[in-house]
Write a protein that binds this DNA or RNA. Sequence first.
DNA 1: AAGAACTTTAGAATGATTCGAAAAATGCAC
DNA 2: GTGCATTTTTCGAATCATTCTAAAGTTCTT
Lengths: 141, 141
Amino acid sequence: MKKADTEAREQAITLLNEAGLRPTRQRVVLAQVLFSNGDRHVTAEQLHGEAEADGAAISLATVYNTLHQFKGAGLLREVVVDSGRAYFDTNTKEHHHFYVEKTGLLEDIAGELISMTSLPKLPENKVVDRVDIVIRLREKA
Amino acid sequence: MKKADTEAREQAITLLNEAGLRPTRQRVVLAQVLFSNGDRHVTAEQLHGEAEADGAAISLATVYNTLHQFKGAGLLREVVVDSGRAYFDTNTKEHHHFYVEKTGLLEDIAGELISMTSLPKLPENKVVDRVDIVIRLREKA
DNA sequence: AAGAACTTTAGAATGATTCGAAAAATGCAC
DNA sequence: GTGCATTTTTCGAATCATTCTAAAGTTCTT
Ligand SMILES: [Mn+2]
Ligand SMILES: [Mn+2]
Ligand SMILES: [Zn+2]
Ligand SMILES: [Zn+2]
């Protein structure tokens, strides 16, 4: 076990403690995979695969549970770009996305790079929870 | 059978002909339900229910087939606001959406009401297919 | 009417996600 | 530390939306 691993592990544990989540074996592994490599977008299936590749046996049900708990704790957000598969995003700052349907490529657009001129009037008794902009791309002709 | 029904039916048939789709019994019914009541957003399940309520027995598989055909012909577009359920939109003009997750409410925002200040630079060899803006709302505190 | 092409259909299959209930791990009180 | 209450994990079954398959039915052209 290298020093770097131990460090990442401790960071993951700190993160979980601060979020009020018990640092169980599987949560620590998933937090490590998710948060020690910069911003990323993953599906449950992908994350499960990575944890497995890391030598950690975690059930897919636990991966789903954990993703939802992390989301609830504000460590992750969900990105909706495809009806049929849920992406989770480690970047919780305000930002938007490029999406290439054919390849599944999902890439961040910094929040400041886009802004809207005006907001239309909202339906009665509602407030804005969040504005999601998805720029759908395709291969250049 | 009233005159209005006959008229809506003929319009539906014309629409299908112009789109190069054979006006089969089930396509005519679905086109009528979809296009003779102003802009709307439906799921396959909803549309199937409405057709049934109209006295037309159509299999759910056919509803799915038809929605995809209509989409392919440019009569419908798909709106992605929820990973898990596909919405089809009879409004094919450029526009955006308000979405209330809790209730499933999906409402149009006219295209002109929103505009972006600038577009960030795109990934290599890609062009914009479409820009989708979803303003997610929740009940006012 | 006949044949070719296209469409519908039921039901099985798939894929993503959730559920239920039992087993395991964890945190606290003694 | 031990014991107990609480939380978490896990497997497998269940669910839900959607797609597939192959057979049966319809439509269009001649
Ligand atoms: Mn979810
Ligand atoms: Mn689709
Ligand atoms: Zn992102
Ligand atoms: Zn719309």
